[in-house]
Amino acid sequence: MKIDLTQDMIDQGLTCPVGKRKIEYCDAKEVPGLYVLVTSSASANSSYYLRWKQHGKTKHTRIARVTDITLAEARSRALTLRREIATGNLTEEREQKRKQQMTYSDLFEEYVTYKRPFKRSIGKDIQFYNLRIKARFGSRLLSSISRHDLQKFQADLIKEELSEATADLYLRLLKHSMSLAEQWEYIEKSPGKGLKLFNPDNAVENHLSKEELKRLVDVLMSDENRPVCQIVLWLLSTGARLNEALKARWEHIDRNKRQWTIPATNAKSKRSRVVPLNDTAMGILEQLETEGQHETLWVNAKTGKRYTTIQKVWQRLRLKAGLPHFRLHDARHSFAAMVANDGTTSLYAIGTLLGHKSNVSTRRYAKYSSDTLQSISNHASDVIQDAMNGDT
């Protein structure tokens, strides 16, 4: 699609039309052959390319991600490439040779540059690379790494007595980086395709029984550390993540609509969502003394700044309540379990309340609504029994 590309268009985000796998937005006026490739699976990670010809064959050279350089810089690089093409300095043979000489270390450097702006856990990736991947694959040519190599690495991780979940983290990093190498045309096919992960079901979740909830609430209502107690009650009554609560600001609260807006910058899913505030949550707001004095709901009296952690106080509170294994994140699970056991709430609604990106995360709460499922099944049985008895 030929358009007059502008930086504003790039900043606002070019999208792939529904029903298409990819689209090329071509620079109509400035630099012939320059275009932005947008795919349906990763529209936020679009890249600049230069289309050129050699011996009658069309070639595509990737320049950079749209978030890494400006449109003006992309045009400048494209013009430089075109001059190299015109003088014979950029040839298919030279480009092919560069790809053939690329090592995994070279790829990982590009991977980090590509991922750093939007992947919060990039530090973990670098740690995994330095711990084991660098020694195993860093100096290897990309073209020499096979699926068998990845499978052997996977087996060796288990021999080191790493857990299956940890081994999967290493393999996911390798699979994803090699998939990008394929997308960037550094290799013809990623060796990670078809590689099976362990995917262990090791999710740990604790939800409170009525008696345990009573013990915890008694502690939270009576303990002298009111701000931390209020934060935990807020987690129990909203199902929010701890980080979302600690970053909550008064400007995000709408008392009239009884709503709390969690901006995308604070949400794990990177999508803003609106959390309805029930009576318990509204009651907590009434107890707070920070409105009009501080931007955030909870402020540490010692530092005058918002809380960044409450783990030390929480350790004391949970022991006081006789719940040594109950984690702060389990308050979120408990909220979901309480909602699921209501008997009228769909898993979709629970997922929306919790801000889940996928219904896979929500399915775990289906087991808490077994009575509801039994009731539904019994209703079908009643209809069948009526038919068997001749009732209409």
Rank of each mutant, 00 (worst) to 15 (best):
I126E: 15
K97D: 14
S190K: 00
K367E: 12
T265Q: 11
T309N: 12
S47W: 08
M102E: 13
Q311A: 14
L131A: 15
E110V: 05
S179H: 12
K29L: 07
S163K: 08
E295H: 11
V36M: 08
K257E: 15
L277K: 02
G123M: 02
V232R: 10
Y365R: 10
A78H: 02
L50D: 02
L347E: 09
Y170G: 05
R316Q: 12
S370K: 14
I284N: 05
L328M: 10
E30T: 13
K124I: 12
R273A: 06
E185W: 00
S346I: 03
L171F: 00
I350Y: 02
H325S: 09
T166A: 11
L162W: 03
S370V: 12
T67I: 10
R271V: 02
T265I: 10
A340P: 04
L171W: 01
T308V: 15
V299A: 01
D168K: 01
E92P: 01
D201V: 08
Q259L: 14
R140Y: 06
T87S: 15
I158Q: 09
M1W: 04
I145Y: 10
Q127N: 11
L213V: 10
S272V: 00
L354P: 08
A281W: 03
Y25D: 01
G322P: 03
P200E: 11
L157A: 02
D254G: 10
L297F: 04
T15M: 04
A74V: 05
T113Y: 06
L233F: 04
T280Q: 14
Q101V: 01
F153G: 08
E110Y: 09
T344V: 09
S144A: 15
D27Q: 12
